[in-house]
């Protein structure tokens, strides 16, 4: 049965109008989404303090930009359908039904193809970013090795080559650093939010992560795994200083460069 009482030619015209309106809606949503994606995440995540974080922020922005048109399609379709075909008042028996549209091969095909392509793109991007992050510390100067020990509810940092231990993390700028992370008791998670690195501190096992801090400043070390009573307080400072200041600090702690 036909609920579309319109003649075929009018229907054709209305279809192109539909597409036009939809495209406009989609474009508006996409543009809004892209603007949001370009400004907001970067603003929230703050200036990056390491090459890893730069990569993280770029990936985040990229993914946001890439997903803006996807979300826009869904929202445009939802909003348009609501504006155009909303029923005024409640349904009553005898009201006409919608068209018996049980599927549309072309639409489905395009939909599946596009989402697969997008997924593939994200995967490739992600793998590339992963290899970049992994190889970050492998390049350049000899990495500074720091042993990180989590315990309930403090971090201690040991610089084995320098013979220094501290509750604070002090890093020389632009020098690769490798963190060997372990725990004395339960699982903690060693997180440097401004530097985009995180790895769990597991008891009995050593895990590692690395980065190159590239911005002077005072940052944070936080625990990102619920570790008991004072989990929320398990944080300390991370200072990125110049190479000279680092040597001075090491000396001040009784270590050797």
């Amino acid at each position: 049965m036909s609920v579309e009482t319109t003649p075929a030619d009018r229907q054709g015209r209305s279809r192109s109008e539909e597409l036009k309106t939809l495209t406009i809606l989609w474009a508006i949503f996409t543009v809004l989404g892209v603007i949001f994606a370009l400004i907001v995440p970067h603003h929230l995540m703050g200036p990056s303090a390491s090459n890893t974080m730069t990569e993280v922020e770029r990936t985040f922005t990229m993914f946001s930009v890439a997903s803006a048109p996807v979300a826009a399609v869904v929202w445009a379709l939802a909003v348009y359908s609501l504006m155009r075909w909303r029923r005024r008042g409640a349904w009553k028996e005898g009201d006409p039904d919608g068209p018996p549209l049980r599927g549309h091969g072309m639409t489905s095909g395009i939909w599946i193809f596009l989402s697969s392509a997008l997924c593939l793109f994200l995967l490739i991007w992600g793998l590339a970013a992963l290899s970049k992050v992994d190889s970050a510390a492998a390049s350049g100067a000899t990495p500074l090795e720091i042993d990180v020990t989590g315990q309930q509810w403090v971090w201690t940092f040991s610089y084995p080559s320098q013979g220094v231990e501290s509750d604070q993390l002090v890093l020389p700028v632009n020098r690769p650093v490798v963190f060997k992370v372990t725990s004395d008791d339960v699982i903690h998670s060693f997180w440097l939010p401004e530097m985009g690195i995180k790895v769990d501190a597991n008891p009995g096992v050593t895990t590692s992560t690395s980065t190159v801090p590239d911005r002077l400043g005072l940052y944070h070390v936080r625990c990102a795994e619920l570790c008991g009573l004072l989990h929320a307080d398990m944080e300390t400072n991370a200072r990125v200083v110049t190479s000279d200041d680092f040597d001075t600090w090491i000396a001040g702690q009784g270590g050797h460069a």
Partner: peptide
Amino acid sequence: FIIGGITGIYLSDVPLDYQLHGS
């Protein structure tokens, strides 16, 4: 769900997950 789904893709990306996990 579109917001939930898209943010899920961020978390499936390993470098991003390193940053966002546990947050």
